[in-house]
Design a protein around this nucleic acid. Structure first.
Lengths: 412, 412
DNA sequence: GCTATTTGTTCAGCGATTGAATTATTTGCC
DNA sequence: GGCAAATAATTCAATCGCTGAACAAATAGC
């Protein structure tokens, strides 16, 4: 589950080419216009000769293709622009959540090429059955992707809970899962992906982490360090530092829902007191707004809240303001600690951002020592509802871009 | 101020050797016994031939030396052990604090080879005068170091405040500094260090950050991710993730002293309410213990508290317990967020650790969701009082180990 | 004294980058 | 239309550094 994109180990002769393949491909991926070989040479510091050789490898491996010439004014031989191939390797993203299953396919460029969502209450469904359904959806996704010339090289599964290094779901409270051995359960089904060196066949991770990765790789590119908060029934956060997700010593970082915002306040099911989740979790907001939980399916609760707030309902507005204040206290802690300048509200919070942002910002201004010199941006996520599935698939595709040598060794 | 120890840029022909020099030297630095060339080959994955060539460069540059043969049982040609040289490059560490100035010199192996402390109340002293005094002490340190065959290749200055990328001290509240241009003030004095490519002549950083780096590089090596808390008049934290200090977007991470532990509690001079500093800062503990601030010099306050607690003074014990509980709430937030498994209490907290640790651990157990699966260690710092100065000097020496090519290019 | 064993060095070979020269292709100007 | 200037991309000998195997060095055990 740890993603080290620094070589760190022995630097052999061949590592040199591997590193430069990744360097050039990464540059092509992040450029805002299709760069020419000459552009890449000046941007990377390599010579044109080397760049040509590297690009030749990438073209042969079908990781990049030549686009229409980049519009450039002036004399000289016209450049040939290089873009990430829209065929070739792609990532499979899977998501199990409380009220839906989602599957998607993302290509090298980060484009979502396939998307399926199956809405259902998954709480009464045994984990093995839920995963079987997901595999069935993934099979159809693979067929569709193959039709577009895409090969699935890895899969990532997002779950709303704690996952350990081996992919064991220790605890997914809102889903009712405990100690579910996901890799073993999925191994019972025929494989959907083609193994590529350097790309794990299956990664299982927290949905908040994967949603944050999705935000990191979304277009247009945003900051490389930020906090992404997924506000669902539970509240999770993905912490992106210097362009990499920070997972913590055991991969359990981001439990922002259990930051104490009122240390002597309401007891929480985690055993603590006054956790953020008790004041800004979906159930807490719904209850504070005077809505009966029973009459609302989970997937419409935030929509209903947004409707009421839009209409000026006083109870809803007050509930959202209080929740935003509690969230702001927690966010202020994070900003004081990590000195981040961007906070993204995702999941259910995205739709409620117009009412949550002002109190969050107010708390930040009041409580963050450095706010005077460095304004903090709080904004809703740009990805849609199944952000974690998109982020999961994108994280797989991203691995190919970060380590193209494995794919190239495969396809000759 | 950002230290990227991954190449990330273009990988040229010669980068290969640079990377392997760093790889081998780093291995020598972290080995618990002097390794032979053969040991290094198996440890790094390089061939013995390559390791021999690399080691030859390191020996020629006087970064390592051959030690007495490592005791090894069995047949075969005896190995020649390699150790970091006790002569050659060294780092200069400087510290300005509220009640003392400190200067030290640390060699490649992390040994403190020189140490000077000047105790005085620095609050009434103008910054320029304080720095002039520090430079004078540093001059003597350089003479002493030169007598041991050590060359100063860079300096790092620790200050108790916020520092920006250019070395400008924006705010050091307890010292009374505001917008002090340290590099410009130091440039007025003759240079003390010999410039080496890749090593900045002067780094100015927060004392909590540098103390954390000192802890990271202390012997015996500890974990590579931890939280280091410096409890002085203010409370600062250094966050070490995966062996690297995390400085935040603007270098202002670690302001744990302003985490809200009682959101509607006592007003804080930062403008917020209920900040940790108001409950666990030195002044708060002293006041809660019923000691008059005026009759205590700042540098003896913690010693006096420890004395009283040792003697069983009820007021002192209660004050420490309450401070520890507040600290525990903040630490629980950090652990929930970052999933760290080690917390180091440094600065004034080190001496008070016997009384602070129990309540801190109690709050962690109660509030951290994952505490059941992953015990968190809370322990006092192993470094002494001037930890920041030692960490500062060590961070300079460490740069040579991480990037030896610059030094080698210099000395031919 | 001989063998087994391990360490460290030497050397031809090779892969990858380098830098200069060369070719390719277009714009602008007369 | 033709020519010079300009920019892009390729070719090729030279060079740098790693590799693998053979070899020399040094010791323990029998």
């Amino acid at each position: 589950m740890s993603l080290t994109h620094a070589p760190a180990g022995a630097v052999r002769q061949g590592s040199l080419r591997e590193l430069n393949l990744a360097l050039v491909l990464g540059r092509i991926a992040t450029a805002d216009r299709p760069p020419s070989r000459a552009d890449l040479a000046t941007a990377t510091g390599l010579t044109r000769a080397t760049v040509s050789a590297v690009v030749e490898d990438l073209l042969a491996g079908r990781l990049v293709s030549e686009s229409d010439p980049a519009p450039r004014s002036g004399a000289g031989r016209p450049a040939r622009g290089l873009v990430l191939a829209d065929q070739g390797p792609a990532g499979l993203g899977l998501e199990v959540n409380v009220d839906y299953l989602a599957v998607c396919v993302v290509d090298l460029a980060g484009q979502v090429r396939h998307r399926t969502v199956h809405r259902a209450d998954l709480r009464p469904v045994p984990p093995a059955d839920a995963l079987a359904l997901l595999v069935e959806m993934a099979g159809a996704a693979r067929e569709d992707a193959a039709g577009h010339g895409l090969t699935l090289v890895g899969a990532a599964l997002a779950v709303p809970g704690l996952v350990d290094d081996a992919g064991l779901v220790r605890l997914a409270p809102n889903l009712g899962w405990r100690d579910v051995p996901v890799p073993a359960l999925l191994a019972a089904h025929p494989p959907l992906i083609e193994q590529v060196p350097g790309v794990p066949a299956l990664v299982v991770d927290n949905e908040a982490n994967l949603a944050a990765l999705g935000e990191l790789h979304s277009q247009p590119p945003g900051p490389s360090s930020f906090l992404h908060i997924s506000g669902e029934v539970g509240i999770g956060a993905g912490i992106v530092l210097d362009g990499a997700l920070f997972r913590g010593v055991r991969g359990w970082s981001g439990e922002i829902g259990h930051l104490p915002v009122h240390p002597e306040g309401r007891p929480c099911r985690c055993g603590g007191q006054g956790c953020l989740e008790q004041y800004a979790g979906q159930e807490a907001i719904v209850a504070a707004a005077g809505l009966a939980r029973a009459e609302l399916p989970a997937d419409t609760a935030t929509a209903r809240l947004a409707e009421l707030a839009e209409a000026g309902d006083a109870d809803a507005l007050r509930a959202l303001h209080d929740a935003g204040t509690a969230l702001g206290v927690a966010v202020a802690s994070v900003v004081n600690l990590l000195d981040l300048d961007t906070v993204v509200l995702g999941g259910g919070y995205a739709a409620l951002a117009p009412w949550l942002c002002p109190p969050v910002l107010a708390e930040i201004d009041a409580r963050v020592l450095t706010a005077a010199w460095s304004p903090v941006t709080v904004r809703p996520s740009t990805l849609g509802a199944e952000a974690a599935a998109v982020g999961a698939a994108g994280s797989v595709a991203r691995r190919i871009v970060a380590q193209p040598a494995g794919w190239l060794a495969r396809s000759g």
